[in-house]
């Protein structure tokens, strides 16, 4: 039974991951315009992916903070430009090709590999590209990843009751896109940390029946 809500902006990469046979028992798509308290009541965790509708999330931010106050987990990835998050995000150029052009200078310089999502990952599996940085985060937040300039890439706080983990990496969207082949490692650990169940090992596959007239919306 899926117990991770994926707040869904109608974007295909969100859909591809949540309907993939490997992940569809873990993730439940929650269309952002239909998001309400009842929709998240029985869930253990929420995922707010890159390419979300930040304006609507801001309007509905109390649903997210009530969820945290209930002691649950929220994972936020990619850009977070608006005010609903208690941190300052700033844009930076996305570098998809550092591993070809400058392999000794990855977008993430330091990672706390003791965090459950990062335990067992190689540095390469813990960093592909970033969508901006956090230039300020809550004072009590734990810093999980930083870049070479010391800007925050990934952080976590318990300030709101549950656990809020935020990163400018974009594992959900990129795994849905399926152009980076090592992301099963990150997403499987993330999924287990969020929902308590580790997906079956192996590569993510696509169910073609979920596309077109059979779309699950």
């Amino acid at each position: 039974m899926s117990n991770i809500g994926l707040i869904f902006n109608g974007v295909w990469s969100h859909y591809a991951l949540a309907t993939a046979p490997k992940y569809r028992d873990s993730y439940r798509l929650l269309y952002v315009h239909d998001l309400n308290a009842a929709a998240v009541q029985d869930l253990a965790a929420l995922v707010i992916p890159f390419q979300s509708n930040q304006a609507v999330l801001t309007e509905k931010k109390e649903i997210i903070y009530d969820f945290l106050r209930a002691g649950k987990k929220v994972f936020v990835e990619g850009d977070s430009r608006t005010s609903w998050l208690p941190a300052q995000w700033e844009d930076r150029p996305v570098n998809n090709y550092w591993w070809v052009t400058d392999p000794n200078n990855p977008p993430v310089a330091d990672t706390d590999f003791s965090h459950p999502v990062y335990q067992g990952l190689t540095p390469r599996q813990a960093c592909w590209h970033t969508h901006g940085v956090y230039t300020s985060v809550p004072a009590a937040a734990a810093i999980i990843q930083t870049n070479a300039a010391g800007d925050v890439i990934t952080w976590q706080t318990h300030e709101f009751g549950g656990t809020l983990l935020a990163t400018t990496l974009d594992p959900i969207v990129e795994h849905g896109v399926q152009q980076i082949t090592h992301l099963d490692n990150y997403v499987d650990r993330l999924t287990e940390w969020l929902g308590g169940v580790r997906p079956a090992p192996g590569r993510m596959t696509i169910d073609a029946a979920a596309y077109g007239a059979g779309a699950q919306v």
Partner: peptide, 22 residues
């Protein structure tokens, strides 16, 4: 120019696939 996983484009359907190596 996007992955229309729902059937709203008349006559044409986009389908995700990762069976082949990039």
């Amino acid at each position: 120019c996007d992955g229309w996983f729902t059937a709203w484009v008349p006559g044409n359907q986009w389908v995700m696939d990762n069976a082949h190596r990039t």
